[in-house]
Design a binder for these strands. Structure first.
Lengths: 154, 154
DNA sequence: CTAGAGTTGGCAGATCATGCCAAACTTTGC
DNA sequence: GCAAAGTTTGGCATGATCTGCCAACTCTAG
């Protein structure tokens, strides 16, 4: 299995990052192949795990989920029990869209999606601050989007 | 145009958030409809802008893009020129996956994707810090992922 | 020049998308 | 309670698409 991706593979990934639902013939045209080898390359990229999957991108505000908040979290201690308890608990909250353990200034960072500031405040005080691992939380609230999306630079 | 989404619409969105490339018949089965009305609902959700689009989710590490960094940025001043200059410049950098202007402690927050720490350091010192708007930057580096993805809670 | 591996393009059958129409269901007004 | 109007559904036919298979092509090594 050749590990490298050639120019056509990269073009395929770029196209599918733009529109994950384009038909295979459309994709084949866009990258300059006939449908057969194009589909084979896509399947191979999926098998190799280069393509993790496909998702629909939903519009938060139109679903009543207009507020995104970035929260930085400090733990009381940094031992494994504290960390695991935090991870287990956080995984259960649907409001938490992303969460990472970090090194540096804080111990964890998360992106929380709710309807509005009031709902966020309820989440923070009723749930987040009640996790025994958590000592303190600081939030940054995006007011304007300069750039969004999860596309990787190819 | 009825603004509300019923239970079936929500189930459609949930399924398409999991697998944006499932066929319409598959989706219809999953939500308990026949293909015809199912497709009509999907098209309507797209027209209404509830579904913004579809994207392939790529595996960063397998593409040599293994490092994500969250950077908080402080501006020298908060006037419109400073902000616009920053926004214009940042939009051009492919390493910047997301970027928001914030209220609160810092002025902007961004997610940067690079191959490794060295590449990030080059980006920060050679590009980010040279934007005249920027006074200082603090970074948080995710070491472990507790939860990832861009799915909205439905 | 030849052998072999890897990749491509075309083809056939199965599956799927799409638009249309009648039937079923829900809502509204009387 | 009942009929009319509006909405949503399911089935069907047609055209497009997917998918696996095989022959032809390209490239490299000996």
């Amino acid at each position: 299995m050749s590990e490298i991706l050639d120019a056509i593979d990269r073009r395929i990934l770029r196209e599918l990052q733009r529109n994950g639902r384009m038909s295979n013939v459309e994709l084949a045209n866009a990258v300059g192949l006939s449908p057969s080898p194009c589909l084979r390359r896509v399947k191979l990229l999926e098998e190799k795990g280069v393509i993790d999957g496909y998702v629909a991108v939903l519009n938060g505000p139109k679903l009543g989920l207009g507020l995104t908040v970035f929260a930085r979290i400090w733990f009381k201690t940094q031992d494994a029990e504290t960390t695991n308890l935090f991870a287990e608990t956080v995984r259960k909250y649907p409001e938490v869209a992303e969460c990472y353990l970090t090194t540096g200034e804080c111990d964890a960072i998360m992106r929380v999606v709710t309807t509005d500031l009031h709902a966020y405040w309820r989440f923070q005080s009723d749930h987040l601050m009640r996790i025994p691992s958590v000592q303190s939380v600081k939030t940054d609230v995006p007011m304007e989007t300069i750039k969004a999306g999860q596309q990787l630079p190819l």
